[in-house]
Design a binder for these strands. Structure first.
Length: 820
DNA sequence: AAACGTGGG
């Protein structure tokens, strides 16, 4: 199967995290003789689906006791196979999962088929050549002595796929039965450990890594067989088995699991990958993990949890002091650091805490071709223009093969340069190879995104114009030249103003290095930086951690729901300013998620369990008070607000008119919320061809699929917590007319502070704070004048914009604000 | 009068 070569795992662990070009053909999957087919897998699909939906909110727990044979699948097979075929393409290029799962069903339990073994054997030859492979023993030794390891593994070192395999058979990795004191004061026997978790920032990464490691270990993947030793868990798609030893999951999923299992009793080790990206979830995960490793581990009966923080950049000092500080604190806090009488009786090393408080550090070189850096001699003021020149300079000078990847800031600059390059290429010397210009940004329809992965036609050079989606989320093969404008759009939450700004900012050195590295994955390359070397040297070293740039209410609610009452005492890898923490606490208090004491309220706990932002969670609960019809409608709207923009972007004037016409029957004068409701209901009512429906209405089909996923998940959760009646009862009321007033009042409960009133000059001023705010041009209320507006987002780009806007009445706002 | 970097539950 030559297609496999394109996944290029052999020289890189990094690739697995990114979008990998998959052949259209189904992956070859080993199939055993039909006679071993297991009858119980033939459960009817419909029922399976329902189980899936119900099971998701409650993280499935698979507890395997020492020496006990795993019971029949505790986890429902989660095939999600009602999704249409196109979903496979649209949801991230990967996954012939559906087919694979089907084929792997017939693999005999407990005995991997010989072809699985053969595949693993062939892969072993490749694994042996990974830079990390010779370090296996060293890593094992270090982790027997230490509970924490920091590992710098450069791109291509193999860390994400190999380390779990190095550790899976260690004795500390076996489940142990220990006595734990439960809440009622009684001692209980509990099984602790046995599984290794590896967190990833992105879903595709978690899934494709799991698939790869399953192949390498010669085991079927996830729920396809009860004997599978490798699984994964991401939102909408969990695939594990009772025998799962190695589990790839997103950071968000691990946080969700911690809500039900704060001591992570399933796990013997947690590997935190891509720490250098510093999303807010990774910071939370690291904080919770530090609390566990440096505490007494009561909930684990003293069984240690091994933590490995893995990063591609060498900046490990802050992590080192972060974990050391944890151990130092616990030592000075109390001398009784030992595991106590309930600790595991065997195997666990009896050395004292001094020995354990060591943090191991390990550095693994990567595998990367050299990339030559070329700076501009003088600063550039128009990087679109500068990029145009460099592109043709490369194109004229450098022979094929070698595609060009250009990093720009947004859709606008991408499209501007696309036009220029195409225009310029018309007059190009016909003796030169042709150029094929391909834009790439997240909002681009899936089919257009796919084009960047296809090889260029003969005698043609691909020129990919991308936002920083190509920096981490997507890997494209064939790139030998990178053009880097040195900038990116950055979201920054302004605590004082209570708004997000989205502005073009210089990138960090590590981002510049990351971009440059995109040219050296297959051959030596070149990186043209559209800034001077002096500018480069002045860049900040690393990306600003997201926790310093975002609204913290979500993070704080997460912490509170996991029992961290003292936010100031939480171990932040980077501590946000007090002002930001206070603002978030106040916001949570305003939506009644916190009590006056600062403790989480019953409402807050309910919100924390929902896969929604805190204000949207509050809206959902308010809607539930207004009856099931209102709740159903509000779930539809909330689902839209939880995904990317459902309306397609229109740049040109004629397209805009076309869009307006196409969407006319969806528009509601009440505003964006009821327009979204009409859209979801129109889409859901379409039973023959939803894709065509979406195209007809200039609505993003991909976004609508996500909306339906969220809607299904949230509906299931509401049903489970008795906020909604059963499906049949819901179906009876679903087609009743919506009540706009009830719906908008529900929203005001979560967004009372996101309101503005009109002033005599026709502009809007926020009711709290009296700031000027304009209705975003994408809103159906753009250019309209109403008494007051409520909005979901307050963003500063060129000016302050309200997005997700509906008309409200001043006295409704007054009611809600008075209630606070 | 005029717009939207990228992820996560």
């Amino acid at each position: 199967m030559p297609e496999k070569v394109h996944t290029r795992f052999e020289d890189s662990d990094d690739d697995t995290g990114k979008v990998v070009v998959r052949p259209q053909k189904e992956e070859q999957v080993s199939v055993a003789a039909p006679s071993v087919k297991e009858p119980h897998q033939k459960k009817n699909k419909k029922r399976k689906r329902e189980e899936t939906a119900e099971a998701q909110p409650n993280t499935q727990r698979v507890v395997i006791r020492d020496g006990e044979k795993p019971k029949k699948a505790a986890s429902p097979a989660q095939e999600n196979d009602q999704k249409k075929d196109e979903k496979d393409v649209s949801n991230g290029f990967q996954s012939k999962k559906r087919h694979q799962a089907k084929d792997q069903k017939v693999i005999r339990q407990g005995k991997p088929s010989s072809s699985l073994r053969e595949k693993a054997k062939a892969l072993y030859e490749i694994r042996k050549k990974l830079p990390i492979f010779p370090h296996a023993d060293e890593i094992r030794q270090q982790l027997r002595k230490n509970d924490v390891m920091l590992l710098v593994g450069e791109t291509g070192s193999g860390k994400s796929t190999q380390i779990p395999q190095f550790l899976a058979d260690e004795s500390w990795c076996r489940p142990k039965t220990v006595k734990v004191t439960a809440e009622d004061g009684k001692q209980k026997d509990v099984s602790v450990g046995g599984c290794i978790a590896i967190t990833q920032p992105r879903r595709v990464a978690a899934i494709s890594l799991a698939r790869r490691v399953a192949d390498e270990m010669g085991t079927p993947l996830g729920s396809s067989s009860p004997a599978s030793r490798v699984g994964y868990s991401v939102r909408f798609d969990t695939s594990t088995s009772p025998s799962t030893k190695v589990k790839y999951l997103t950071e968000g999923m691990l946080l969700q699991e911690m809500l039900h299992d704060p001591w992570l009793t399933k796990y013997s080790a947690v590997l935190v990958d891509e720490v250098h990206e510093r999303g807010v979830n990774v910071d939370l995960v690291l904080g919770f993990l530090r609390n566990i490793v440096s505490g007494k581990k009561e909930g684990r009966g003293g069984v240690p949890l091994k933590v490995i923080a893995m990063s591609a950049t060498a900046d490990m000092e802050s992590l080192l002091s972060f974990f050391k500080e944890g151990f130092d604190n616990s030592k000075s806090a109390g001398s009784e650091g030992t595991n106590g009488s309930s600790g595991p009786s065997d195997e666990h090393d009896p050395k004292g805490d001094d020995e354990q408080s060591q943090v191991a550090v390990c550095h693994i070189k990567g595998r990367q071709f050299p990339v030559k850096t070329i700076y501009t001699p003088e600063p550039v003021h128009d990087f679109v223009d500068a990029a145009l020149k460099v592109i043709f300079q490369i194109h004229c000078k450098e022979p094929l093969p070698g595609d060009i990847l250009v990093f720009l800031t947004g859709q606008e600059t991408v499209e501007a340069l696309e036009y220029l390059v195409n225009d310029y290429s018309i007059g190009m010397d016909p003796a030169l190879p042709k150029v094929q210009v391909l834009p790439l940004f997240a909002a681009l329809p899936q089919a257009a995104q796919q084009r960047v992965f296809q090889p260029a036609p003969p005698r043609t050079r691909k020129i990919i114009l991308s936002t920083n989606i190509a920096e981490t989320s997507v890997t494209i093969s064939g790139i030998r030249f990178v053009v880097d404008c040195g900038k990116a759009k950055m979201k920054q939450f302004r605590t004082r103003l209570g708004l997000d700004s989205l502005l073009v900012k210089p990138i960090s050195k590590s981002a510049a290095i990351q971009r440059k590295g995109r040219a050296g994955r297959e051959a030596p390359g070149q990186c043209y930086r559209l800034y001077t070397e002096k500018d480069y040297l002045a860049l900040q070293e690393t990306n600003t951690p997201e926790i310093l740039r975002c609204d913290l209410s979500q993070a704080i609610l997460t912490m509170k729901a996991r029992g961290v009452d003292d936010i100031v005492g939480f171990p932040f890898l980077t501590r946000p300013p007090r002002e930001a923490l206070e603002k978030a606490l106040l916001q949570l208090f305003n939506i009644q998620a916190l009590e006056e004491s600062g403790k989480i309220s019953a409402i807050g706990l309910q919100i924390a369990k929902l896969p929604l932002t805190a204000p949207l969670g509050r809206v959902l609960l308010a809607a539930a008070q207004n009856g099931p019809k209102c709740l159903l409608d509000v779930i539809d709207i909330i689902s839209c607000l939880s995904v990317e923009n459902i309306f397609l972007n229109t740049t040109s004037e004629e397209k805009k008119e076309e869009a307006e016409k196409a969407r006319r029957d969806l528009f509601r004068r009440e505003g964006d919320h009821l327009t979204m409701l009409a859209t979801v209901q129109g889409y859901a009512a379409e039973n023959t061809d939803r894709k065509a429906w979406a195209e007809r209405h200039m609505v993003s089909h991909r976004a609508m699929q996500s909306v339906m996923d969220v809607r299904k998940q949230v509906t299931a959760q509401c049903r489970q917590s008795k906020l909604l009646p059963d499906a049949n009862t819901c179906a009876l009321i679903a087609n009743d007319q919506p009540d706009p007033v009830l719906i908008l009042k529900s929203f005001l409960t979560g967004f009372a502070t996101n309101t503005a009133r009109i002033v005599p000059d026709g502009s809007y001023r926020t009711i709290v704070g009296n700031q000027t705010v304009a209705i975003h041009p994408s809103s159906v209320l753009f250019g309209k004048k109403v008494e007051a507006i409520m909005y979901n987002e307050f963003v500063f780009t060129n000016r302050s914009y309200a997005r997700g806007v509906s008309a409200v009445q001043m006295d409704w706002v007054g009611e809600v604000l008075a209630g606070q």
